[in-house]
């Protein structure tokens, strides 16, 4: 096992911790808006870490670029999607 492997897997383990936090958040937090905080922030970073660890393990520039594209798509639909769901929920309440 090289240093690179240990680093990659370590970053990925850290990523799964944020996924766990996201799930605990949506189960524990009191309302839809607070749960959205968990989904948008924790999962976004979790995926970023998993993608980073994967590209370290894959050690290939084009794979890294594809993983970066995947993360961008998820981050955009996460941040704006979180806002859109909140907006929807706000109209539900009123």
């Amino acid at each position: 096992m090289s240093v690179q492997d240990i680093m990659g897997v370590g970053i990925m383990v850290l990523g799964t911790v944020f996924f766990l936090a996201g799930t605990v958040g949506i189960l524990r937090f009191p309302d839809a808006f607070s749960r959205l905080h968990a989904v948008t922030k924790a999962d976004n970073l979790g995926l970023a870490l998993i993608a980073l660890g994967t590209s370290i393990l894959a050690a290939d520039g084009f794979t890294a670029a594809k993983l970066f594209l995947i993360w961008i798509l998820i981050a955009v639909s996460g941040a704006i999607g979180g806002h859109l769901i909140a907006r929807h929920a706000l109209r539900d309440k009123s």
Partner: peptide, 16 residues
Amino acid sequence: PLGPLFLPFAKVIVPS
């Protein structure tokens, strides 16, 4: 109607 933030969303998602 989806508000002003739907446009940047579409600008990323549609061409992608």
